[in-house]
Simulated assay, not measured.
Amino acid sequence: MNQKVIAVILARGGSKGIPRKNLRLLAGKPLIVHTILDAREAELVDHIYVSTEDAEIADVSKEYGAEMIQRPLELATDAAASAPALAHALTEIERGGMYPDLIVFLQCTAPIRTGKDIDMAIKQFQNTDADSLLSVSPSHKFLWEKSEGYASSINYDYRYRPRRQDMKTQFVENGSIYVCKPWVVKQEQNWLGGKIDLFVMNENCVDIDSLLDFEIAELILNKEQSE
Rank of each mutant, 00 (worst) to 15 (best):
L86W: 03
L86Y: 11
H88D: 05
H88C: 01
I69F: 04
T91P: 00
A58C: 00
I69M: 05
A87H: 06
R71H: 07
V60G: 03
L86E: 03
V60M: 06
C108Y: 01
A80G: 09
C108V: 10
I122K: 09
L102M: 14
K116I: 13
I93C: 02
Q124N: 13
M120Q: 15
Y64P: 06
I112A: 11
T114W: 08
G97H: 10
L90C: 09
L86R: 15
R71W: 01
P84Y: 03
A66M: 02
I122Q: 05
M68S: 05
I69N: 07
D101P: 07
L73N: 12
S61T: 10
G96P: 00
L90A: 03
D129H: 14
K123S: 13
S82W: 08
K62C: 04
T109A: 07
A83C: 09
F125S: 07
P111A: 12
K123D: 11
E94I: 02
Q70S: 14
A55T: 04
K116P: 03
S82H: 13
L90G: 02
I93Y: 06
E92P: 04
A80C: 04
E63I: 00
L75Q: 05
I122F: 04
G115Y: 09
R95P: 05
F125K: 14
A76E: 09
L90F: 06
D131H: 12
R113M: 12
T109V: 14
S132L: 10
V104C: 10
T128N: 10
G97L: 06
H88T: 03
S82Q: 14
D129V: 12
